[in-house]
Amino acid sequence: MNSTPTIEAKGTIWQKFVSLLNKIGFSPLGFVLLIILALLPNFYPFSQEYIVRWMIMGAFLAAQSVAFDFTAGYINIVNFGFAALLGVGAYTSGILANTTPFLLYAPGLNPWLTIWLGALMAALVGFLLGILTLRLRGIFAAVMAWFVGIALMGLVNNLTDLTRGPLGMNPVKFIETPNNLPYFYIILSMMIVIYITLKLVVGSNIGLAFKAIGQNPDAARASGINPTKYLVFNFTLSAFFAGLLGGFYAHFFGSLTPSTLMHTSKTVEVLAIAYIGGRGSLWGGITIAFPFVFFIEFLRSNLSSLPGLHLVIYGVLMIMIMIYYPSGFSGFYYWAVVKIKGLLNKTK
């Protein structure tokens, strides 16, 4: 008699915890994996500096893929100028952190402040891009974003007074430290914040509206959804986070050139991760990015006589996924969960 209520209470606490996790977009498994990921660089094989650097790259790529998937997976528009938005954030933040505007030879603003200004600048560009693509769908929207991206990259290349063009500029770093670990926690927390924010947005009514617009804009309009509002909101938010990540890039690497940051091939890298991870899941890209970066960096360091091999693998994998398994890793996960549950029910 006495024992049942406590079990029930335990059950409810557990359920409450799970539902809380679900609300912010984690399954219990995912939460455990995230904690392991956060602790990983403190233990030996992973605490070496170069592996921490790989993990930073992984988190950076993962966070980008989340922001990218927010547009591509929900509203069904491939933002082909994503890398350029990243570059806008990075350059704005870098320039403001190096020199105070309108005051030559004055020390710049704090990078912790300027990354937000960079993000706002990118959000502004994303807002304009959203307005530009309003009337367009599918391939036309993708090409529009692509052209805007090319134009932005050309602009950065040509405004040599501000950006030093193809020579590249050197923004100050967040923290002067030889250690990479602080940067890992910065990017990891950025990734988590981006993921939770976007997951909350997607889980609300706004997310439903996104999906409706993505599937059939006319039907969405007919059922009282204003596509303009949601589309522009989606682009702005995605661009805001892209700009934030660009700011991280600027103050982590401490060097910026247009072609290493804003080139279309950078968008393609993010796109490949997001698609292999699974469209419309947000978390798919995160799970894929880390093993992928490890695999690729491993290849690059061990087969340095074969430059570009990792990128070939990227492309081939993406082609295979697109042809034969378009739902990606997240689709596979959901399929596996259903299968396992079915098996468990049978044994019961």
Binding site: V78, I139, G308, L309, V312
Partner: peptide
Amino acid sequence: IMNAFLLTVGMSFVLTNGTTLAMG
């Protein structure tokens, strides 16, 4: 259309980097 577009994007990636691999 969109799938074909992304496929050609992947192809372009493979061909460019495959050429780098083979020819330097």
